[in-house]
């Protein structure tokens, strides 16, 4: 008997993004990853940059002087916004993944409601809080301090 040929049909990285017809939680999942990577990258640089305080006052002043420009301010603001989202969405995920926001198992009755419906009000609240923090942070970054 000839070997059965199968055509590989994995979605690959495109599958992480979903596309157009998926629920909002899938986009939050993608954004959580992207912001997490961004924060990690910043954090690794941050460790080295701020360690200049351990050497001397001059080095600290020159390092801070180097980063004192609009481009880095915008970059820092993006990290701040990423953190606000990642923290508040992470709080939601933590509560869901430890079973506090999924609701207990229940007999499925059509039209089906799932754990997605249980966590959704909390998700909306978290996203509103994140948006508020990002807006107030923007005011602090670009208006209040200048």
């Amino acid at each position: 008997m000839p070997e059965i040929i199968r055509y590989p049909n994995k979605l690959g990285l495109i599958g992480w993004l979903g596309g157009g017809k998926w629920g909002v939680e899938r986009y939050l999942y993608t954004l959580h990853r992207v912001t997490g990577l961004g924060i990690l990258l910043y954090f690794l640089m941050h460790i080295f940059v701020t360690s200049s305080r351990a050497i001397s006052e001059e080095l600290w002043r020159s390092t801070m002087g180097f980063f004192d420009s609009t481009v880095f301010l915008i970059g820092e603001y993006l990290v701040f916004a990423a953190f606000a989202f990642h923290a508040l969405n992470g709080l939601r995920l933590g509560l869901i993944e430890l079973g506090f926001l999924t609701g207990p198992a229940e007999e499925p009755v059509y039209p089906y409601k799932s754990s997605l419906n249980v966590q959704r009000p909390f998700m909306i609240v978290m996203m509103i809080v994140a948006a508020a923090v990002i807006i107030v942070g923007g005011w602090d970054f670009f208006i209040a301090g200048h």
Binding site: L44, I47, F48, T50, S51, R53, A54, I55, S56
Partner: peptide, 15 residues
């Protein structure tokens, strides 16, 4: 990274 960051925190305290 943890070792480096710890050194920086302690060294800046000493400084």
């Amino acid at each position: 990274l943890f070792a480096f960051g710890t050194w920086a925190a302690i060294a800046s305290w000493n400084l």
